[in-house]
Design a binder for these strands. Structure first.
Lengths: 222, 222
DNA sequence: TTTGAAATTTAGGGCTGACTAAATCTAAAT
DNA sequence: ATTTAGATTTAGTCAGCCCTAAATTTCAAA
């Protein structure tokens, strides 16, 4: 039996893994806001169940089975986020927490009805890919806005969705997936990012810029 | 902290109580499919929390606080059922189980959005009253179809929603809230109920008829 | 009034998933 | 090669909610 807690761990591990690297106990503990011993305990259980591989003191990796479960949960989560925004009229800062609770309890039919109503979408309101029913995901890794060189134009692709306050802030500035942003400068020194968005000029902190993922269009346009 | 399990117990007690009568441990245990000792344990906890009053060996009653919680859960449940049917396109036999899981995790805003989308309805797909935000409920108690005297016409008002198979059966026969049913006879002896519904004639078992609640219109019409 | 069946509670345990404190392992720096 | 800081695991608890078996209470029938 896979419990809600197990689903949460598998999802966290899925989101933390980059390529073939093992995911550490501490990283999972931080992501989930639990203690390291709690993670060790769950790791033992998930390993026994064949959902992860564990090398003592080295970290864990999802097995194919574990990856399948994680993607199903993530599909629920991201479909829910989009459904809440598009169909129910939630603002995008509220949907992460709501989806975190709902993702574990909705039926496959509920998932299907949402997907139908939304026209089988592939990205959620924050620009994250929605895994397909068969597990296919187009996981792209983008640059962060903080890394973009001054003078460049960049299209916003993704925004981290775990901080409601930041999401409201970004929404005000129209820094949302699809928006075109011009990075004017980092000033005075690695300082606030000077941006031009749709004529308006803004300064945003570097920490915030680290949560915005972009595709650079051109180094110098007009 | 009120847990999901506590909410389930309060809801069960609310549904079992008729008038001022105390609700027995056994009744709760049967309704919830748990053992009697489990109920006793939870009763102790809910009593400590001031959500129910308990007299040893006599049964329990909801306090005002307990009633408030129960009605909020029930409002969630019945709004969800209607939302799933009307907005998402579920069939009415599936929505009870789905709502049983969702009712504990949706936010107040989710509840509000559903209510808005549905035009602030007062009854769910099975004809049960949806408690208002302020706790107001028009709980009417109807006759069961099994009690209606042959020769009478009756309007279906409510149907028990806990048996999906029965709901599919009733739906086929068009025995749904709002339908007008003529009771032709009970034959041969207290036997299957002989009904006429919209020209068509049907025979339904007495156990099924006990789950259909009606308002008798006239003893003899036409 | 006694007795017995049914209802209820008490006693004792199991499982999950969290915690802190303490022990152990790893890996990097001296 | 040794030290040491940080990461990880082990050990021991606790709370929530379930269970069975046994004890107790209630209530109605004899």
């Amino acid at each position: 039996m896979i419990t809600h807690a197990m689903e949460d761990y598998l999802k966290a591990i899925y989101l933390l893994q980059k390529g073939e690297e093992k995911v550490s106990t501490t990283a999972i503990a931080e992501q989930m806001n639990v203690s390291a011993p709690s993670v060790t305990g769950m790791i033992r259980k998930l390993t026994t169940m064949g959902l992860i591989d564990h090398t003592s003191y080295q970290g864990v990796q999802l097995t194919e089975g574990g990856k399948k479960v994680a993607k199903e949960v993530l599909r629920h989560h991201r479909l829910l986020e989009l459904y809440l925004v598009e169909i129910m009229g939630f603002t995008w800062d509220k949907v992460h927490d709501e989806a975190d609770k709902l993702e574990h309890v909705i039926s496959e039919e509920f998932e299907e009805k949402m997907s139908d109503a939304l026209g089988h979408p592939t990205t959620d309101p924050h620009g994250h890919a929605i895994p397909a029913k068969d597990g296919a995901v187009k996981e792209v890794s983008y640059e962060t806005l903080a890394e973009v060189e001054p003078g460049s134009f960049a299209t916003v692709e993704q925004v981290n969705d775990n901080n409601p306050e930041m999401l409201r802030y970004l929404d005000n500035l129209e820094i949302v997936p699809g928006a075109l942003v011009q990075v004017v400068a980092k000033e005075p020194f690695n300082g606030p990012l000077h941006l031009k968005i749709d004529q308006a000029e803004h300064f945003i902190g570097l920490e915030v810029a680290h949560n915005v993922f972009v595709e650079v269009s051109e180094k110098e346009a007009n």
